[in-house]
Design a protein around this nucleic acid. Sequence first.
DNA 1: TTGTATGCGTTATCAA
DNA 2: TTGATAACGCATACAA
Lengths: 342, 342
Amino acid sequence: MVTMQQVADKAKVSISTVSFVVNNTKPVTPETRERVLQVIEELGYRRNRMARALASRKSHILALIYPMLDHRNHHAFIESAATAAEEHGYNLVLWPLHSDNVSTEITSLIEAGFADGVLLMEVQLDDERVAHLQQAAAPFALIGRTRELSGIDYVDIDFERTVATVIEDFAKLGHRDITLVLEDLGGTPLAGYAPPVRTEEAFRDAIAERGLNGAVIRISHDPDAVAGVADTLLVQAPATTAIVSQHDAASLALLSALPRRGIDVPRDMSIATIATATSLAALTQPPLTTYVGPGHELGRAAAEALIARLEGRNGPATQVLVACRCHPGASVAPPRATPDAR
Amino acid sequence: MVTMQQVADKAKVSISTVSFVVNNTKPVTPETRERVLQVIEELGYRRNRMARALASRKSHILALIYPMLDHRNHHAFIESAATAAEEHGYNLVLWPLHSDNVSTEITSLIEAGFADGVLLMEVQLDDERVAHLQQAAAPFALIGRTRELSGIDYVDIDFERTVATVIEDFAKLGHRDITLVLEDLGGTPLAGYAPPVRTEEAFRDAIAERGLNGAVIRISHDPDAVAGVADTLLVQAPATTAIVSQHDAASLALLSALPRRGIDVPRDMSIATIATATSLAALTQPPLTTYVGPGHELGRAAAEALIARLEGRNGPATQVLVACRCHPGASVAPPRATPDAR
DNA sequence: TTGTATGCGTTATCAA
DNA sequence: TTGATAACGCATACAA
């Protein structure tokens, strides 16, 4: 490993001068700068990140506290967070957090001087991890939102706007009987997971505002429950002509079960899904109309919010909401026979 | 931040003694050890990772060089690699690699003292990244395999055994006309991606060995190509009674298109998929019979192989192949009318 | 068994 | 504009 000292010697300057040119931290005459750069090039010098971290008390590492769950798609988020971090000279470490030692693990990360800040995913409405971070005065940003948000940097999906848009799109087509299908997370570690809660609230608001008829169906991840979603729908909300689903398995089950009951999608029943992976939508027949989750935008925004905080930009908290974008498929159409459709 | 020196002072020992108990690196009398541990507890001391890394010349960080691709599911692998690393006192950093600066980026990682070793995913048959790593004498392990493997630590899916098992399972049911559906990656950045190549070879071998009739269909990711997979199949291999698919989109397309042509799955056509995400299999109707990729095992094995290398266990290279495990669904059955089925 | 002292490769402070 | 030099927090060879 080539050290700064070696560069300094060969360039016949002091080690500090090398540091100045490497970090652009003090003015250096063009000639010496050039000479130093040349030697750096020749020797293939790269500054040692650990030494740098030790001396500057900044690791330039962001930890992504990251849930050990299988069933969601975090790819986009993680990928973009890592890329954004790298662009700003930071690095993203995956920090698998095991539920038993949350309290210590999470702060030791910072206290041990390993990471400068923390990115937290899959935030619950009341999340003890957030409490720990605040208490430890650790810089952090959330992907998702807790209930209490004052002064907290976060980025999240704008469920309100997303659902409102879906309902609006449905309403424009003439739908008046709309059902929301949600994951039922009761009894799972994700029981306090916010998205279904916010979606349901937004759904009720949007329905009420337009004077439509809305129903909500909660389906667990039990295979039988998923397989029975069409029956559940037809029993609990028989008038439904359009479905908003935030439950991927249920969406697919509907797509295959409805036609068997003589209900064609989209002719007799429209289906739109929220915050699904793009990959899934393209695979179905008909292709699902999807309101795609803004994983990439959120990953980048979260990393940048955290970095801004770390670099001392002490503005107001970054609080970003991004709505899902409609990715049209072929699972949505006007209702078959609506007397009051325009 | 509490330092070792502070602990030493309060415990009235020297800083080295503290180091000895913290690292278990030299014998210490039970009493002083106890005293030191007590002070550590009181003060909430944690050793600083950066200082430790600098002094010991070991960062205890593994970099996961990781492809910026959307369409595969790496969750299981990344998750398990991160967990395994953590269990051994290492950490996993995501290192987004952009194709332009592969050569330098990859070695600077090690030379800059940032990571101790590298984990490489999505390995091509001839992968320049591997060449760079070897040349830089950087410790690494592959998930996947290059063509040349001597002395290289790697873990990979055992395509040979997996395909052989699928064919065997099909043959036992009486199928004699089997078609392999693959991704056509020609023209994409993944053109040299090994799995399809190995799968095809294994397929031809297995078919030949049993004297069966085999066909191979390559489908690109173009939506039209995917949508037309059923037609392609019926034209190119009309006798087919069983399909092995390593193309998720095509699998789903088949599942929905075949019934429309009066071909019931699994009564008239069996479908099994290879190395698919478990999550997908459960969502289809009928549920897909899947030979599930061993992502978790591979992630762990790769991390542990690399760590073993780093810690100086200079044995022969770790070369692990794990076959996919059959996850039965309801998309496989005996062929409808085979005169020679027993 | 414990302590002293040096070095790891930078950054940063202070002089020159 | 440059150069000494003292941290940074810990590991470790060597001494006691």
